[in-house]
Amino acid sequence: MGGFLPPAERRSGALLALYAILSLFLLLAGERIPTAALRGVGAWVFAPFDRIVLSADRMAAAWRENQDLHQKIAELKLENERLVLAGVENNELRRAQSLPLARRFALRPVEILALSGEVLPTAATVSAGRRQGVEEGDPVLTGEGLLGRIGETYDDMSRVTLITDPNSAVACEIESTGVLGVLKLASTPHARLVLANVPLTDTVHVGQRVLTSGYSRHYPRGLAVGRVVSATPDASRLMLEVEVAPAVELSRLRHAFVIPGTRQAGMP
């Protein structure tokens, strides 16, 4: 059979067969191969180039962003004054009720170096790692809301598993009503975030905010996750399928914050 083809074509055919077999092997057994170290090397190699490409993109947006930030700072200063007063009042009330006081978290700013994943980004490489005190499991967020948690750490970089990762699950509650559910990625009919395990009898309205509940002990309580886009009965007609639009615009990620050391400190 092989004699029909010239040697060069036989060689390339054999090479293709080898690649196909390797690919099929990786598809079948790839999840069992430890690839974290290889991704670490990849992140280390790509980080300087990512920085160059991103800095060009960011310089163009920096001026406009600066103006927006000035305005936001002024607004936030006013709001902060109001919140400080409300915080004092809240602490006094909690003390009176013998409830534990809410803890403050230190935020470590990081730069988003790269995004990966198809349809929706599922992972991000950020510019802080073990040397900066970032640990696996630390929550990552932006001003808008929760982004995910640190999945892998390297010396000066980390990889964030975003809430859109197929293996991610975030214990959430709906603001003010306290309806609980688990936020996951659903792939049918298209990739989207869905709040699962919500009983049909619970009342959920479009536009309500979804926050972390703190029950999974992976994330502190009260971080914004998204907003309810739709709530319809699922296939079993026993549960609600609540579609959630993420609070963070995943296509516009530039900077984020890590809450370091939350594992040791305990949640929420």
């Binding site: 690649y19 196909a20 390797l22 690919s23 099929l24 092997f25 990786l26 598809l27 079948l28 790839g30 999840e31 191969i33 690839t35 290889l38 991704r39 990849g42 990966s116 994943g117 198809e118 599922t122 992972a123 197929p166």
Partner: peptide, 14 residues
């Protein structure tokens, strides 16, 4: 690309 995406190694390669 597969290593970067972290899931389904072999998907892009084939």
């Amino acid at each position: 690309a597969d290593l970067d995406a972290a899931h389904w190694l072999g998907r892009h390669t084939l």
